[in-house]
Simulated scan of single mutants.
Amino acid sequence: MKSHLLTTTTTLTALAATSLALPQPNTLPHPKTLAERASLLTTTNPSNRTLDEIISSWDLTNLTLAAVRIPPVNWPLPMMNKDWDGVKLDLNGTVDLGIRLIEKAAAEKARVIHFPEVWFPGYPKGVINSETPNPWFEYHVKDYIENSLVVGSTNWNKLVQAAIDNSIYVGLSFSEKDTAHLYMAQSLISPDGEILIHRHKLRPSAQERDLWTDGKLDQIYAVSTPIGRIGMLSCGEHTSPEVTFLMQAQTEDIHLGSWPLTPDFGNETLTYESAEVITSLGRVYAILGDSIVVQASIGTATIFPAGSSAVWSQTVANVSFEEFPLVYRSFNATAFTNTTYNADGEVSWGTLQAVNQGFPEYIPQVQGGLVPWHEDFLGGLVGEEVD
C-alpha cells in the first residue's frame, strides 16, 4: 500500500521485547574518544530546559516521526544518474538544507527526524563501479573527502544546535572524516544536545569498502530514551545476520534505518537498488524486530509500523521533492515496553547458542576475508604513499 505523506496515529501493542543491555561504547577508532570530541562543541541550550521538561510538553500518545526523502545540495538527478562530471558537492549548503528540514519537521510537531545514508554531503552514486581503474575514485574522491563532515566542526555544531533549538531528536547519517579515515557514520542527537548514539557502518558494501573504513561491533547498540528504545543501522547492514541479530537482541521500539536512494517501483533491472528490494528489507526488519522502522532514503521513503502490519506511510520517488521533502507517521509511544531484553524471545542469548550449536559440522571453521577489520587511509585515497 502506497500513500503520499500519510499521517496516521496508530496504537501499538509492543510484543516480546528482546534486547541485551550493552554498554555504550566509550572508545572509537579515532585519535580522540567521542566524549573528548564532544567537549569541543560550542552549542547552547537557550531555554535551559532539561530533557524531561522538553518531553513533558509532548503528547506521547501521538508521537510523530519524519523521514527525509529530498536529495542534498548538488546531488545529481535524475535518481539513477551516476554521472558526476562537473558536479561539486556542497557540505555547507547541505548542512543549511538539513537545518531547514529539521525546522520544518519540528514545525509539523515531529519529535524525531532521520536522514538517508551519508546524506551529508550525499551518497556518491557511481562509487560501486566494475571498471578498473574506478573513474569515480579517479576524478571525485578528493572533493568527497573535502566535503565529509568532521565531528566537533562548525557544521557539526550547527546540526547539534538545530536539534536543541527545535527540541527534536535528530538522526544524522553522514560521511565522517577524522585525521586518517572516512567512515559511514550515524549519530542520534537528543533535543538537549546530548549525543546518544555515534556509530560507523560495520562493513561498507562492495566498493564502498575502498572508500570508507569499517566500523566496530561495539558500535551496534540501542539506547533507552523517554520516547522509547532507539537504534540505528545503515543500508546493507539490514542484510547482515550478525548486525541485525545484535541490534534486534537489544529491543528497539524505533529503528532508524538509512538508505542512500530508493527509485520508483517497477524497474526490474535495478536488482539490489530497486524499490521492491529496499522496502522489503524495511518491512521484514519491522516484523522480525517488532519495531517501527523509519526508512529514510532519497526518492521513496517509508515508515513501517512495528510487526506485520500491511499499512505503512510512504511517498514514492516521482513525487515532488520540494512539495513533499519529508514523510510523516504518528504512533502511540506510551504503548512501547521500553524493555532491554527478553530471555524468551526469538532474538536472545538462548537462540544465539542454538545457532552456534546447530551450525553444520561439515562447514570448515575458517574465518575468511570478510570479517577482519579493514581500513582506508585518506592519503591512500588520493594517491599518496601510506606507510
Results as ranks from 00 to 15, higher is better:
88 K>N: 10
67 A>G: 12
92 N>I: 12
98 G>C: 10
124 P>F: 03
112 V>D: 00
54 I>W: 14
49 R>S: 05
42 T>A: 07
89 L>P: 07
32 K>Y: 15
125 K>V: 13
80 M>F: 15
82 K>Y: 06
77 L>K: 11
107 A>H: 04
103 E>F: 09
46 P>T: 03
53 E>A: 07
129 N>P: 10
91 L>D: 00
100 R>P: 07
112 V>R: 04
35 A>T: 06
128 I>N: 04
80 M>D: 14
71 P>T: 10
72 P>K: 05
123 Y>L: 00
92 N>W: 14
117 E>V: 02
130 S>H: 01
98 G>H: 03
38 A>K: 07
70 I>V: 09
98 G>E: 02
66 A>Y: 14
99 I>A: 05
114 H>Y: 14
93 G>S: 13
90 D>F: 03
60 L>D: 05
57 S>N: 07
104 K>G: 04
100 R>A: 08
70 I>H: 06
89 L>C: 07
35 A>E: 05
30 H>R: 14
116 P>E: 03
70 I>N: 04
94 T>Y: 08
124 P>V: 02
125 K>M: 15
35 A>L: 06
124 P>E: 02
66 A>V: 10
120 F>M: 01
67 A>I: 12
30 H>Y: 14
41 L>Y: 03
31 P>H: 08
59 D>A: 11
102 I>N: 12
87 V>P: 04
133 P>R: 10
31 P>E: 13
124 P>L: 04
67 A>Q: 11
109 K>S: 14
47 S>V: 02
122 G>S: 01
93 G>F: 15
97 L>A: 08
79 M>C: 13
75 W>D: 03
35 A>P: 04
127 V>C: 09
85 D>V: 11
85 D>G: 10
69 R>D: 00
108 E>Y: 06
100 R>V: 02
73 V>I: 14
108 E>I: 01
74 N>W: 14
118 V>R: 02
46 P>D: 02
57 S>G: 06
79 M>D: 06
74 N>M: 11
126 G>K: 02
96 D>K: 15
68 V>I: 12
113 I>T: 11
86 G>P: 09
